[in-house]
Design a protein around this nucleic acid. Sequence first.
DNA 1: ATCCACATTTGATCTGGGTCAAAGACACCC
DNA 2: GGGTGTCTTTGACCCAGATCAAATGTGGAT
Lengths: 244, 244
Amino acid sequence: MLQEPILTGSQNCAECPIRHRAVCARCETDELQRLEEVKYYRRFEAGQTIIWCGDRMDFVGSVVSGVATLSQTMEDGRTQMVGLLLPSDFVGRPGRPVAAYDVTATTDVLMCCFRKAPFEGLMADTPHIAHRLLEMTLDELDAAREWMLVLGRKTAREKIASLLSIIARRDAILHQRSKDAPVVFDLPLTREAMADYLGLTLETVSRQVSALRKDGVISLEGKRRVTIPDLSRLLDEAGDDAAT
Amino acid sequence: MLQEPILTGSQNCAECPIRHRAVCARCETDELQRLEEVKYYRRFEAGQTIIWCGDRMDFVGSVVSGVATLSQTMEDGRTQMVGLLLPSDFVGRPGRPVAAYDVTATTDVLMCCFRKAPFEGLMADTPHIAHRLLEMTLDELDAAREWMLVLGRKTAREKIASLLSIIARRDAILHQRSKDAPVVFDLPLTREAMADYLGLTLETVSRQVSALRKDGVISLEGKRRVTIPDLSRLLDEAGDDAAT
DNA sequence: ATCCACATTTGATCTGGGTCAAAGACACCC
DNA sequence: GGGTGTCTTTGACCCAGATCAAATGTGGAT
């Protein structure tokens, strides 16, 4: 579908699940070969739904560029985002025939996909891929549980600070920013999407973002470009005990 | 440590992770043999902490009887429960050296444990065990994400109803209750633990439980024994779209 | 039986964030 | 340019659930 694969770094490649992070170094050539045969790319526009909850899902893949979200919606329209998919994140559930959540592109998205059957075959034959997938699922579980603390116990201001610090951290890794480089990034989410992530209303998100700006914790250029002059200050606001 | 393993059902055995549910049927004898050699039991009393977040964790295991919780606490004392461990649930993170959460027994608990190193060795040799573990982790991830919807978007009353319906469902499976048997179970959690699970205060939990009782959705015998005359009514209150 | 340590309920009051409403601020198109 | 749709901000008011406080079970231990 797409001619040239997009590589985001020298060692790490965001385009395919088995080259992900630690696994990458251990890939053998013939495995890669097998995957190449079933690999394809898909593009989605901002706002487009990638899969609906309950749909048959015959592929797995990972986000190459752009941002997508996983979300759940109740009949009366209340929605909660349950996952944020940034470049290099894996999408799909090996062994599960249908999607459990709505997956939506919030910016233009490029995904690298594999048909599920061949991918599962490869998983069965290649223990370290299965192992890597377990690792990734455990990471997602940790992220989900950290998010439960945010949703259940943090104030609106802390929630916003937590979200900003997560995005800042992921953005720093993605662009391999040095540790003391100034922290500047574009918010990939609308106020409404942020609200859906945080269990707030969009009005509250807007007010709290303004408050953080007024207090000098962040500064904004336009509506989306965020600068964080002092990251530790933001982490304080987030109430994070994990002051890594 | 304990002489007689406790079997809770005819086909399904809650005592060891590789006999779990679907995997059980595919276990070969020599694998079981290898696990028997490293298996041991541990007992915990109600209220006792099983592991602290950050502690070195050199075992994995599963809950045989009783109820335990996973929880996270902020420096100022706010706590959020992020997992509820009922009989047959797995505890531990293969490949991770330290515990990520506090694990606490809320009733007396009997756990069936395996030292981590031999268990990981077995995992490496036995694809279907690794596969089963991925399945279980995906289930936990689904549960965590469903809980994010509860925490972020449901009202106090809906939260209580959601918790009760989850416990009722698990209890029915554990005791192999027939589908149309009356739903009666003991709450394994204090009001405070329920509050920590739901992101509420214990006063609000108490008030909402009373309200559900007054409205005839549930009835109580003492503080803990719950009867649910009409399960579908409870599910309505919970706002569950998954009306399975 | 009495005491003690809890868990739980209930009441009174307060407040953070929701709700409703209106007014910017852009971006894009004709 | 003006028009139109979407995103965002801001204001006024309200309410679900938090907070503070006190009373009421309830089950051991002695």
